[in-house]
Write a protein that binds this DNA or RNA. Sequence first.
DNA 1: CCTGATGCTGACCGTTCGGTCAAACGACCC
DNA 2: GGGTCGTTTGACCGAACGGTCAGCATCAGG
Lengths: 221, 221
Amino acid sequence: MPADPMPADPVAAEPMTAEPAPRPLTRIQKRNIDAILEAALEVFSAQGFRGATLDQIATAAGLSKPNLLYYFPSKEAIHLELLNSLLDDWLAPLREMRATGEPRDEIMRYMRRKLEMSRAMPRESRLFANEILQGAPRMAGTLAVDLKALVDDKAAIIRGWAAAGKIAPVDPHHLLFSIWALTQHYADFDVQVRAVLGPGHDPFAEAEPFLDTLFERLLRP
Amino acid sequence: MPADPMPADPVAAEPMTAEPAPRPLTRIQKRNIDAILEAALEVFSAQGFRGATLDQIATAAGLSKPNLLYYFPSKEAIHLELLNSLLDDWLAPLREMRATGEPRDEIMRYMRRKLEMSRAMPRESRLFANEILQGAPRMAGTLAVDLKALVDDKAAIIRGWAAAGKIAPVDPHHLLFSIWALTQHYADFDVQVRAVLGPGHDPFAEAEPFLDTLFERLLRP
DNA sequence: CCTGATGCTGACCGTTCGGTCAAACGACCC
DNA sequence: GGGTCGTTTGACCGAACGGTCAGCATCAGG
């Protein structure tokens, strides 16, 4: 009988307080866990949490359902792991906004990076949109603490820029909301945008100059 | 045996081609059908289609599940009836945009009405948001035909205003997208907005002057 | 007060879903 | 080639869900 009664949760035992044995991941573990998270992102983002089934995720990952549950203890755990591991990437562009940069450049760069993320990562956008739409039952805490802290921090920077006359005096929080709303709209409501535009359009390519103009005019002192 | 084998579908037999008997609704029918649609709006908008259960809707409507299914043939039918009966109200503000009005006034009025609808009808907004997010499986046709026709019509008007120099030259479709995105964001992502702002804020009250400024600056020739 | 149509319900059904388990498989090392 | 540990699976389970049905309750009109 081994000292450590595996197979208890190959994931998640990683960035915690001093654990007895971090136990590095097997090649097979890494491959399968990655496949599961990729498949789960595909299914959860398209169907929502309740709409997705373990069989769909297992099939998309090329595994059987029991095998999937060998790597994750529950459907909920997969969803949570997805949300937590993707949140950092999702907020990275905002984190990179620097008080020392040129104000208009910093904001415009942030907006463009967010639009690019909506284009390149629509599934992640829809995953979060689904979660927030349902009232953020699994993220309310994170939003009210971590996200709020980050946003308040950047809002203070923006407020400083406005006070110094570098940009027009706008409400910093709602400026950020408007960037989120406008960029994520093209990912979350993609089918509606394409239905309205009709064939032969590239929504993101058209959105870029439009949003450039919009925010240029809004921010010009 | 009566000529008309009721109780076949108290709803829906109304604005069709010449039917044998429109059969007016009983007081009880009207009351219960209204209660069901109200309850279904509450539940579907909060949980999505798959996340909602007939028991939840029945309980919220103060009925038993079989009784609910006496008035509607299926869960799908309730959802469809909701979407169709609410779509008109949802698009009404856009329909009222007049080519004969003052361009800036017309657009600003539309934006304000949309924001007001997000404030007063957040459940409807989330119902549609859920549907679009999942790829609009039940509305793709309507979007590509009816909505596209309406939008193209209004886009032509806006394009005319821009060509006449009444407003700044902006892409009309993306102008409408930006109005949708910015106003519906406050309904659909309400929990996130409130989590970030913290207590003691009225998101919609703050959004109004911000969006006023934003669109004033965007549209000024 | 009778009667037929409308309104309502408890019990039930088949399916789907999240999750479990004992057993088998397979790769690697002695 | 035998033991071991990580990996995989078929079969199964209980709960939840959408939906059905036979029969009872209620109501309006004569």
